[in-house]
Design a protein around this nucleic acid. Structure first.
Lengths: 109, 109
DNA sequence: TCACTATGTAACTTGACTGTTACGTAACAC
DNA sequence: GTGTTACGTAACAGTCAAGTTACATAGTGA
């Protein structure tokens, strides 16, 4: 679940959103934030470890791009949560239906 | 984006997953982790602020349950990211198709 | 009323994370 | 080769978050 920690920081969060729109070299990314370039460099390495971004070298530049793999991890976790939650609601619904049915039958005679 | 920060902590992460399966009073939740009860109490208040859980009072107990609202925030962010990402891929695909078409037409005569 | 249970809050300590400056390295361009 | 550009890494300082113990509060039951 390293993806949540990676996305918890607002700078990293915005970086991922930016890279969804277009690939960018490290320098350009850093230029868009008012923190130092080394700080951004470290944010990028955190995102790399979380599989949220990828790099390719191009001349002296390192061009970063989104890595959908990391997003899948987040998606999957939320989906799992929601699934068990919905299963509970369904079970509750069936239980209420059964209760109503029994009441209806018992009230008739 | 307070939900990501809330879910970044492993204890809070597990708490949410547990509450998806069943509602639980604060004490029961704390008993499942090897951290002190006050620590869990603070985790719960963080989750409350992030709209990831809800509470209802029942006698002296405070019973916690999942709040799907917070999960929506996460879902929406990921969906937005993925959407702009896919839009890019689609645009690239169309561009390549157009290129191939132009090449086919030009190569015929 | 009095003990007991179930929780939240306060004060404090400690460890992790973020940011900065300084420095090292690899790829151009001349 | 030499200067420049584009990055990453190291060392260090400051801030914030998570854990602990001690204490306060509120509902239960006899």
């Amino acid at each position: 679940m390293t993806a949540f920690a990676a996305l918890a920081d607002p700078v990293r969060n915005q970086i991922v959103a930016m890279l969804a729109a277009r690939d960018m070299p490290a320098g350009d990314i850093a230029a868009r934030f008012d923190v130092s370039r080394p700080a951004v460099s470290r944010h990028l390495s955190v995102l790399l470890k979380a599989n949220l971004v990828q790099v390719r070298e191009q001349a002296q530049m390192r061009v970063y791009s989104l890595n959908p793999k990391g997003l899948n991890e987040v998606d999957d976790w939320v989906a799992q949560c929601r699934q068990t939650w919905n299963a509970r609601l369904d079970a509750l619904g069936r239980q209420l239906d059964a209760l109503a049915e029994r009441k209806r039958k018992g009230a008739k005679p």
